[in-house]
Design a protein around this nucleic acid. Structure first.
Lengths: 206, 206
DNA sequence: GTCTATATACGGATAGAC
DNA sequence: GTCTATCCGTATATAGAC
């Protein structure tokens, strides 16, 4: 089956529609009818291809999770870059991803909250972090700088907080700051450079 | 009516139960039956006291929003403290609040996403920020430091990202970092001091 | 594979007894 | 004010024609 045929197959149409609607409204608030309509197909086809709403959701969730984590894991184990360059690349690639697909973080945070074990257990992310080149470089950076060494999760929280939070809080931030969509996106692009500088500072200062 | 009577009144019992369940599961996923059960009361009483699930939800949403914003607004307009002290106090009070009520941020972000205008329009938060003592002090700090002045919303994003995001991403962070609940809370307490230092650094460095 | 029609379950809301 | 019983719309899932 060619790529173009695959994209247009009924199964792919359903998955693409399901992804869009689930990302926008979350599991509980989406109706299978919404997905069928978004796909331009009959409701019965959802059950023909994917047994149930739950099963369809699980597939979308897994793919979304992999896409989101993939952006990180790819950079994590590069031997040729230092920690600051890694941080800079993660920041840039996440901001690019989230400008294109801004609903992903809220979707993921919600559904991980609903079922923390389910998916997260599938991917063994925990060992991915601790055994990474990134973790080794982080420990080296901590050893060099003044002050107490900080748990690596503080660094992960900072990186994600500075990059991902604005997309989760977007509706609130737009109101508080009186920001248009264009202005918001422009600020996110500014943040590629800014966040890189801030996290580099955190690695040095005591 | 005395305080103890008020706390135990049927209306209060329903509101307390509704708050707990809505915060935990969000609007779409909570059933009025869940709330009745949590309150130890009959389902029919919800409609007797609060017409509909929507109406009950709106009340909880408004109260939660006010509680969340209140912690900020209170500090915003204090004339006697500098900007760094304000930041430090906001960080500390938010972390204390969120250790007690960790579901609030995800709840608020979700429901603001569902209906950005609804509530946010009610409170005119936008003018609260721009007319605050805090905003004036921020502009002064920007004028003094080297480099281009940064939009105040970058500062708001940083403050909230560093403080609030960990509570939103808690299930993910616990898995990635192999953290127990106790360890997670301990790290959040550490962050009172750390985040204060980081944001102070952002106000100075170019 | 795709459709129409329908079975079945669930959830919000209310009627009416007490 | 509070309960039990029930109505009724809506949503998932499936049966069966084409």
């Amino acid at each position: 089956m060619s790529e173009s045929e695959k994209d247009r197959s009924t199964e792919e149409k359903i998955k693409n529609a399901a992804r869009a609607v689930f990302h926008r409204k979350g599991f509980a608030a989406t109706r299978t009818r919404d997905i069928a309509e978004e796909a331009g197909l009959n409701l019965a086809l959802l059950n023909y291809y994917f047994r149930s709403k739950e099963k369809l959701f699980d597939i979308i969730m897994l793919e979304t999770m992999m896409g989101f984590m993939g952006a990180m894991v790819f950079v994590f184990n590069d031997e040729d870059s230092g920690i600051e360059e890694k941080a800079e690349r993660m920041v840039a690639s996440y901001i690019d991803l989230l400008i294109k697909e801004p609903q992903i973080p809220l979707f993921l945070m919600n559904e991980l909250h609903r079922n923390p074990a389910g998916l997260a257990g599938t991917l063994n992310i925990k060992s991915i972090l601790f055994n990474s080149v990134f973790a080794r470089q982080y420990q080296e950076a901590m050893a060099k700088r003044s002050g107490e060494p900080l748990h690596i999760m503080h660094f992960v929280m900072n990186l994600m907080g500075l990059v991902v939070f604005p997309f989760i809080g977007r509706p609130m931030l737009k109101i508080i700051g009186d920001l248009s969509d264009e202005k918001f996106v422009a600020m996110m692009k500014e943040r590629k450079k800014l966040v890189s500088e801030w996290v580099a500072g955190m690695l040095k200062a005591g």
